[in-house]
Amino acid sequence: MKYPRARAVWAAAAEAAFPEGTSGPSHRDAQVSERFWEWHDALPPGSARLIHLLLWTIDLFALVRTGRPFTWLPPERRLQLLSALRASRFYPIRLVGESMKGLLTMTLLSSPAVMRHVGVYSVDAHPADPYQLPIKRDALRVLDEREVA
């Protein structure tokens, strides 16, 4: 398997960010790791390098801040660390946190499990829809019948 360290960091972040045991789909339900690396493999090489740099930075930040690699930390501590990155007053650190949050959320929200959970549907058939979303052709008309405040 390619990039074992980067994969471990991503999986650890996904586990902390989208834990099991809530009313929403977890990282496992949403296949956050598998889908992320599929996406990564579709990126041009320069952009893929940026992703590796980001994951390496997360690992390094954990090491500097806690003395342990990111993957060695318990999930709650990993989540705290990701939140601390996002809240930093120092822009480059905050950028790392926001980028990680963005990638995690992007991967989660675009998963079929989350689409089903949210109730996403389409108004027209899509020839290449891998998600097989429900089609509600009259949805716009029905929605228009309700008043907006």
């Binding site: 989208f18 929403g24 949050k101 963005g102 992007m106």
Partner: peptide, 23 residues
């Protein structure tokens, strides 16, 4: 939604419990 709402909300259990709000 995966693109538009990338920055929306936080992370963790509370975030997952709010996903239905996207509607």
């Amino acid at each position: 939604q995966g693109l538009l709402l990338m920055r929306w909300g936080g992370l963790g259990a509370k975030f997952l419990e709010r996903l239905h709000e996207i509607r």
